Amino acid sequence: MIVKQSTVSNNAYFVIPEDSDDLFTLRRVIEPGDYVIADTTRAVKQEKEYGRPDRGERVKVRLSIKVDRIELDSTVDRLRIAGNITNTDNELVSRGTHHALTVQAGDMITIDKDRKWQEVELKLLRKSGDGSTPFVLVAIDTQEAAVARVTGTHVKVIPNIYSGQSGKRYATSAKGQNLDTFFSDTAKTVASVLGENDRIIIFGPGETRRRFYNALEKNGVPKERARVVDGVDVAGEDGVFVFLRSAQAKEAMGESKLATVSSLLDQVMHMVRKGENRFAMGLKDISAAASAKAVESVVFSDSVFRSADEAEVVKLLNAVEAQGARTYAVDSSTDIGLRVSSLGGMVALLRYALR
Rank of each mutant, 00 (worst) to 15 (best):
V240M: 00
V150G: 01
V314M: 04
S74Q: 14
V340N: 02
V228Q: 00
G239Y: 01
V29D: 15
F24I: 10
Q143F: 05
L194E: 05
S341H: 12
L343Y: 01
G337Q: 02
V261R: 07
G83T: 13
R115D: 09
Y213H: 05
E47V: 12
I85D: 05
V120C: 06
N11K: 08
N10D: 14
K4C: 06
V314D: 07
I81E: 11
T327R: 00
K284V: 09
V234G: 05
A100F: 00
K60R: 11
I65S: 09
F243L: 00
G220Y: 09
A319R: 15
K315N: 14
I336W: 06
I201D: 01
E121T: 13
G51I: 11
S287Q: 10
V228R: 11
A308D: 01
S163L: 02
T260R: 12
V299K: 01
T102D: 02
V155R: 08
R278H: 07
G33N: 12
K223W: 01
L349D: 10
H98M: 05
M346Q: 10
K113S: 05
Y13I: 09
R210P: 00
L283K: 07
K4T: 11
F243Q: 01
F212Q: 02
N160Q: 12
T7L: 13
R80C: 10
F203S: 04
F135I: 03
E18T: 10
G275A: 07
E255S: 15
G324D: 08
L265R: 01
R227T: 12
K116R: 13
V136S: 02
A174P: 01
G167P: 10
S307E: 15
M253D: 04
S246L: 04
K188N: 15
G275Y: 09
L216S: 00
D73P: 04
S303N: 15
A82T: 10
H98R: 12
N87M: 12
G96C: 07
L265Y: 08
F24Q: 07
L72E: 14
A12E: 12
V59K: 03
